[in-house]
Design a protein around this nucleic acid. Structure first.
Length: 528
RNA sequence: GGUCCCAUCGUCCAGCGGUCUAGGAUACUGGCCUCUCACGCCAGAGACGCGGGUUCGAUCCCCGCUGGGACCGCCA
């Protein structure tokens, strides 16, 4: 219990409850976690969240975060799809300490482990054909009975096995799940059930009779995931397996493997799944780009804003803050506070305003309008460059102007892309007049066609060109024409930015400067 | 069909037996601010799936039901 008395920054009380000590004193060891995606051609947000939780846990405990690519499905594993995962993680800022390692490279170890299981009597050769098994399964399904391997080959005598091997019959290796009723399980696996204490879900127990003798090596000699994954985790000295809840059902079988191999158990923590609005598992095939990390990069998300959003999909701070910095997340993250119920990724298909979960956008927008302006300046630069709006002077003599302009417009922008699209009039003379701005603010009063150039003349004479002086000039102009200042102000905004909405007009004018303001007013008047 | 997991506003979360006329965020509505739109501020609407227990008292504990999800492959 001494460990638990010590709730220092390395180990939270919740991470070292008494049962943990009875399993293995893993809290004594340095934390080692891993993210083990299979390369599917992209990193999706569910995977990113798994990576994030592992990363946070490692960082908090000063541990090691390992990246392992589970590339044993040859068809899906291409260089490109592996690269996509690395790129996604790098962009998110989830740096790994070891790897990437590849599951395929560890195949000799997987087979060695299988050999040991066979020799120690924890596994046996099964000669049943896939056709037979499939037939039996279909039959069971038809009779609405449970289907599991019927253990036909479990009782084969050494002679029978030898004879079949002589005939050259192919076989798979199956794990011999201890059968309490037969009491024929090998030593060390006794008991009616296998139970473990999940760091998120609590005690999870599964009866041995409900676990079938699962295959660990295929007939072509290739090891299967359940075995490979466990063996890799043993080799990598993984102390905490933090993965999606879809791995919860695999855990009892993997624990059986650990025990049969005489290896200490890691702690397990399963995370709730992220579902779509119809409560189905998310996948690129069904949902498209919106579930990929790359989509958010391309749409101008800040990496940490995405992480922040993902973090909250199943976890909360003690005081319920929604904006959590990277440092705070590392400090405050606890598996004990992770939610157990699945959460819904609330994106709406074809919604022009909310191209993804509104909360994700809100969080991104929050960061954009509150983050350090210098940092934002650095992030917006590539966006402007890409759009051909970047002026090298923004990094030199016009730097102050650049910063000030960003600060002026950022409050109404949601993504980095907005600076290059909605922000275009602030960085270029070449911009469109939005139809609505034209009809609502410029064409409503036909006199504006004459007034705009007159106002241009007037403003050109204003010196100095300041917030106060421009406002005085515009308001005086409106008064002389006996119209409300708002009419002129809104018309001018539409004329110089092409937009209906934007910062306070005089801020805009000063930012654009005298010459540009006058030129834009005259140019727009020609369109009326 | 079997096994396992889950269940609070539309969505994401808080709540860990009384402090709940159930709190926050987001989205929505109204107002304030105001030259517009945002921001900000204020207000409103909006949830404990159902039925049994346990208890002086249940959102919170137990059971059942219903609903949702996951797993059950010689995929990972």
């Amino acid at each position: 219990m001494s460990l638990c008395a010590r709730s220092d920054r390395y180990f939270r009380i919740t991470d070292c409850l008494p049962w943990r000590l009875s399993m293995h004193a893993i809290t004594d060891q340095k934390v080692r976690v891993r993210f083990a995606p299979s390369p599917t051609g992209y990193l999706h947000i569910g995977g990113a969240r798994t990576a994030l939780y592992n990363w946070l846990f490692a960082k908090q405990h000063n541990g090691t975060f390992i990246l392992r690519i589970e590339d044993t499905d040859a068809e899906r594993s291409t260089d490109e799809s592996i690269q996509a995962i690395l790129d996604g993680l790098r962009w998110l800022g989830l740096d790994w300490d070891e790897g990437p390692t590849f599951q395929s490279a560890n195949r000799p170890h997987h087979l060695e482990a299988a050999r040991r299981l066979l020799e120690s009597g924890h596994a046996y050769k099964c000669f049943c054909t896939q056709e037979d098994l499939k037939r039996k399964r279909l039959e069971a399904e038809k009779e609405k009975k449970s289907y599991g391997y019927d253990r036909t080959c479990r009782g084969l005598s050494p002679e029978e096995i030898a004879s079949r091997e002589e005939q050259g019959l192919p076989y798979v290796l199956r794990f011999k799940v201890p059968d309490p009723s037969l009491d024929d399980g090998p030593e060390g696996l006794a008991g009616e059930s296998v139970a473990f204490e999940d760091l998120v879900y609590g005690r999870v127990e599964k009866r041995l009779q409900d676990i079938e003798d699962f295959v660990i090596v295929r007939s072509d000699g290739l090891p299967l995931y359940l075995l490979s994954n466990a063996v890799d985790d043993m080799r990598d000295g993984i102390t905490h397996v933090i993965r999606g809840q879809d791995g919860l059902g695999n855990t009892p079988r993997q624990i059986l493997i650990y025990r049969a191999l005489g290896s200490p158990l890691p702690s397990f923590a399963h995370m709730n799944l992220t579902l779509d609005p119809k409560r189905a598992k998310i996948s690129k095939r069904r949902h498209g780009e919106v579930v990929t990390v790359d989509f958010y990069r391309k749409r101008g998300f800040l990496p940490w804003a995405l992480c922040n959003f993902l973090l909250l999909l199943g976890w909360s701070t003690e005081d319920n803050r929604e904006i959590v910095t990277r440092e705070e997340a590392i400090r405050e993250f606890t598996l004990a506070r992770a939610g157990r119920a699945n959460s819904v990724f609330d994106y709406r298909k074809g919604d022009p305003k909310f191209f993804t979960d509104p909360k994700a956008i809100a969080i991104n927008a929050e960061y954009i309008r509150t983050m350090d302006i210098e940092e934002l300046a650095g992030l917006v630069r590539p966006e402007l460059e890409e759009a051909g709006l970047w002026d090298p002077a923004y990094a030199a003599e016009r730097r102050d102007w650049y910063i000030h302009t960003l600060d002026l417009i950022r409050a109404r922008y949601h993504t980095l892309k907005d600076f290059a699209v909605l922000g275009r009039p602030y960085f270029s003379e070449d911009f469109e007049i939005e139809p609505k701005a034209l009809s609502k603010n410029l064409q409503k009063d036909t006199r504006l066609k004459d007034w705009l150039p007159e106002l241009a003349d007037r403003l050109e004479a204003v010196d100095p060109f300041t917030l106060e002086s421009t406002e005085a000039a515009v308001r005086a102009f409106a008064e002389e024409r006996e119209v409300k200042a708002g009419l002129i102000i809104n018309a001018v905004r539409a004329a110089v930015t092409g937009q209906l909405a934007g910062p306070g007009l005089f801020e805009i004018l000063v930012t654009l400067g005298r010459a540009s303001t006058a030129a834009r007013l005259r140019r727009t008047a020609l369109l009326l």
